[in-house]
Amino acid sequence: MNEIEKKILEEVSSLHAVPMSGAHNIRLNGKLVSRGVTEGINILSKKDKDGIDVFIKRGTKNESVHIPVIVSFSGVKDKVYNDFYVEDDVDVLIVAGCGVNCNGSSASGHNGIHTFHIGKNSKVRYVEKHVGLGDNEAKRELDPVTDIILGENSVLIMETSQLGGVTKSIRTTNATLARGAKLIIKESLLTSEQDIVKTMFNVNLEGENSKVEVVSRSVARGKSCQEFVSNIIGKNKCFGHVECDGIISEKGIISSTPKIVAKHPDAMLVHEAAIGKIGEGQIEKLMTLGLDKEEAEREIIIGFLR
């Protein structure tokens, strides 16, 4: 791995070196470069297509799996299918980062299709970071898809971020929740220049007392354009809350389309959206503390997307 590749690895996975202990699978320019498994977590390459199956055994607790993907050549269009089979009574952290560094004019990208099959009474924290690096000419495209089947009384906390450098991106998250299941999604997006991002959340609240909370915070700068679409369907006594908070600056555009469908008398669904530029008062406050306008805006945005 060269310096740039190491830098991306660090950015997307908070890992500093390969090889590492613990369960992991590192993919560089479409090839496997390192894999580790543990007693509770096994990783196997798929036979029929690109990608891996990650098996997490019943009762596995306090373990983590890192599966970073690095694309450092221009013109690489990587598409992988990663399936996570999480059995019952599990408590793990999954870190799946994807970094694309490329220069030059041909487009590079990565489409990761991640599917979570989560059993009963399990708790998974899933952290996903998308990073684009390189000069402005190059196109970097990332189209992640996340499919979630969440079993009874299980919890999935998904923290996903894409903070700049990705030219074009369609992000899709689909989830179906069984009885008592809880899905918490925290998304942070930053776009600039001419970037285009569309992010979609389709959540089916099938089971009684299932619950979803989506908080999406986005900043659109330059002439970038973001579209947020959510579709939450409550088919049982359930709770759903979607919050879309956007900051626009320069000529950035954000659109937010909420759809909430209550198909059960005890479904309780809420959608909140607020889009606007940074509050004048917030900038003034930080200026009274000695920051100039640009520094103030930067601090506000860093905090907002954290």
Partner: peptide, 11 residues
Amino acid sequence: VTFKGLKVKDL
């Protein structure tokens, strides 16, 4: 003035 995401310690 209040913020979203900035902590008391940050300020």
